[in-house]
């Protein structure tokens, strides 16, 4: 009996809250052009960052601090999961081997998924997507291997230092910017060295965006596969 009362009460509360939020949203009509800072970005993204994809330019260059924070968030997630599910000795929980199709398929597809992932984060400044989607695809490659094989584990001794190195790389790029251009996360490649100004829209353009995105891609890839690994292993109880 109580749960019915509770559910109806919940529905009423949520309707009122919904009505209130809708009233707020009505003040922000859908589809109108209310851009202020956005317009500035669109007009000067090509000149100031050399990237064609305005979103990635904003993500890495204009609002680089957010991305730095956001990379830390992912790093915290992987460390947190690692800390929480840490066991002295762990082994895979999988019991049944993947079917023949899965095993052979995954072995075949693994290198191509990796290549596709690297393609996404290298071309971050040109095509949609960037470090994060690229890293995610790399992680799915390892996920498939986990599903296929019972005893497969990612090479921890390689991945964890790689993760740290990639993160440090990102901050180092920022610090170099501080040293050269006296501003943290300053795009010294584009602003001071003016590399790749000529071939706008092609691979070697967009200042330090591709470098950062490769670092982010590696980092996200290793982190997500680390999370997958901690979730798919359990403690060895003597």
């Amino acid at each position: 009996m109580v749960s019915v009362l509770k559910r109806s009460l919940a529905i009423i509360t949520l309707l009122i809250i919904g009505y209130w939020l809708a009233q707020g949203l009505a003040g922000v009509p859908f589809g109108q052009d209310r851009m202020l800072v956005g317009k500035y970005y669109l007009e000067n993204v090509k000149a100031q960052t050399g990237a064609v994809n305005a979103v990635t330019a904003i993500v890495v260059n204009y609002r680089g601090f957010d991305t730095l924070g956001e990379v830390t968030v992912l790093f915290i997630a992987s460390t947190g999961v690692g800390a929480l599910l840490w066991r002295r000795k762990k082994r895979r929980t999988a019991k049944t081997e993947g079917s023949v199709v899965l095993r052979t398929g995954s072995e075949l597809l693994f290198p191509f998924i990796l290549m596709f992932g690297t393609y996404i984060f290298i071309h971050g400044h040109l095509t949609p997507g960037g470090g994060f989607p690229g890293g995610a695809t790399i992680a799915t490659a390892f996920l498939i291997l986990y599903m296929a094989f019972v005893d497969y584990e990612i090479p921890h001794r390689l991945f964890e230092p790689l993760e740290g190195l990639a993160g440090m790389g990102y901050v180092l790029v920022g610090l170099i910017g501080l040293a050269i251009g006296s501003y943290f996360l300053f795009d010294w490649i584009w602003q001071t060295w003016h590399w790749g100004a000529a071939n706008l829209g092609r691979l070697f353009s967009g200042g330090f965006i591709p470098i950062i995105y490769t670092l982010i891609g590696l980092k996200v890839g290793t982190e997500l596969s680390g999370i997958v690994d901690s979730m798919l292993t359990e403690e060895v109880r003597e």
């Binding site: 509360t13 009122i16 809250i17 009233q23 707020g24």
Partner: peptide, 13 residues
């Protein structure tokens, strides 16, 4: 939490 949101909503409405 929901109650506080409700209070804010009622005041807003």
């Amino acid at each position: 939490l929901a109650i506080i949101l409700l209070i804010l909503a009622i005041w807003g409405v």
